[in-house]
Amino acid sequence: MSTTTPRATRPRRVSRRAFYATALVVTILVAGGLSYFASSHPDGLEHVAGQTGFLGSADDSPTADSPFADYATRGVDDTWLSGALAGVVGVAVVLLLAGGLALAVRRRGRHDADDADGTDDSRDTVDRRVG
């Protein structure tokens, strides 16, 4: 395929910061709003366990007395608010943990990249000398 028309550089439609902010708002709306409309039917595994007869072997979670157990905030009576709070708290915790983990992993990677850059620089110097 030899095209003759140069493809124009597609302009970036949103800045990175705007993208991240939008993604975060959407995520909070899903956790705090859309989740209210979630189906309360058992999920696939639970349904199959009930249907085939091994649901009884499930134990209660040791964290069943967590203040956010079953995506409900203890002490908050309003169903929507209770679920929304638990959802938003969960989102915040996951965001911090996963983001922090990624930052920690990335920094080490970046250090390695710095080393690699050093090697590249020296090779560039050699190339320049040769050229």
Partner: peptide
């Protein structure tokens, strides 16, 4: 971080 948070949120629905 955002993808993990979104997956968490979406798993509530």
């Amino acid at each position: 971080g955002l993808v993990a948070a979104f997956v968490f949120a979406a798993q509530m629905v």
